[in-house]
């Protein structure tokens, strides 16, 4: 595996040199490997969104470096818009940025801005939609006639069609029903698998994080609090609770079971793995209905 993103000593101060100065990020350093899915968790105001804004150059660091694919993105400030095709950023509630008459045209907006046209553009759109299972018949509908979940998926596809090497999503599942959440999660996984891309997701939803993230980056008050594999982070529930976060509900249930004196492993973070463990145990014991 090779490192695709490196953040070195990143500090960001809003309104620097004024009485309103507020440091939102303090000396953040971490690196992300190609193909990883990294979850960013933290409280409101912990600096998650500020961090994400730096990754594609919408915000300029007060000090520190952001190195994407071996190159400091601020080496040539005039070419900062180029970085936006390398690092795709999906904002919160991306469905509010839809504007075209048809879904097809809206998805085409990003790739078109990259200079694609004609067959190349058409292939790109169809290929991306196929990869993330957006149905062909959706393409010719107006984005405003879709359901909330569909709108969200189409808007995310609009960024994916630019084929960014790093896809960054800010709260991609916020406000969706469980089915919508699952389809967005699946879409993100599909994108990673098809294009061997790196994904970073900001979320409050620990359950979804446990489902999808390889690593978790925990932010607290502008500082990097923890950065480790999802398993190692969720194993240290105490440390998460100290800053007001928590582990997935199913892990809490398992913890309660352990406190009752039953020996259960401490690496169960999703409902699926819990079900798997319990069925395997009960089968060993002769099955539940025995």
């Amino acid at each position: 595996m090779s490192t695709i993103l490196q953040v070195k000593d990143l500090t960001h101060t809003y309104n620097a040199d004024t009485p309103l100065a507020k440091t939102a990020l303090k000396n953040i350093s971490f690196s992300v490997e190609k193909g990883e899915i990294v979850g960013i968790i933290g409280h409101t105001g912990s600096g998650k969104t500020t961090l994400v804004g730096h990754l594609n150059g919408l915000l300029k660091p007060t000090s520190g470096e952001i190195i994407v694919d071996g190159k400091n993105i601020w080496d040539e400030p005039k070419k900062i818009s180029k970085i936006r095709s390398l690092v795709g950023l999906v904002f919160q509630y991306p469905e509010y940025q839809l504007f075209e008459e048809t879904v097809y045209k809206d998805i085409a907006f990003g790739p078109k801005n990259l200079g694609l046209s004609g067959d190349e553009l058409d292939n790109r759109i169809r290929e991306t939609c196929k990869a993330v299972s957006i149905k062909e018949d959706l393409l010719y509908k107006s984005p405003f006639d879709l359901s909330g979940g569909e709108k969200r998926r189409v808007a995310i596809a609009g960024v994916m069609a630019m084929l960014p090497k790093i896809l960054v999503l800010d709260e991609p599942v916020a406000g969706l029903d469980p089915a919508g959440r699952n389809s967005v999660i699946k879409m993100i996984e599909d994108y990673r698998d098809t294009y061997n891309a790196t994904v970073m997701i900001v979320s409050h939803n620990m359950e979804n994080m446990a489902q999808i993230a390889d690593k978790l980056l925990v932010m607290n008050k502008g500082e990097l609090y923890m950065y480790d594999t999802t398993e190692n982070v969720f194993k240290r529930g105490e440390k998460l609770r100290e800053i007001g976060l928590n582990v997935p509900i199913v892990t809490r249930v398992i913890d309660v079971i352990r406190q009752k004196g039953i020996d259960v492993p401490d690496n169960i973070f999703t409902v699926e793995s819990a079900v798997e463990y319990i069925t395997s145990k009960s089968q060993k014991a002769g099955g539940l209905d025995a």
Binding site: G53, N56, L58, S81, R84, S85, G88, L89, V90, F91, P94, Y96, Q97, F109, G110, N113, L114, G158, V159, M162
Partner: peptide, 13 residues
């Protein structure tokens, strides 16, 4: 501002 940032992220100039 939010929408401008979102469209900039999609490569709008």
């Amino acid at each position: 501002e939010k929408i401008m940032n979102a469209q900039k992220a999609r490569g709008a100039d």
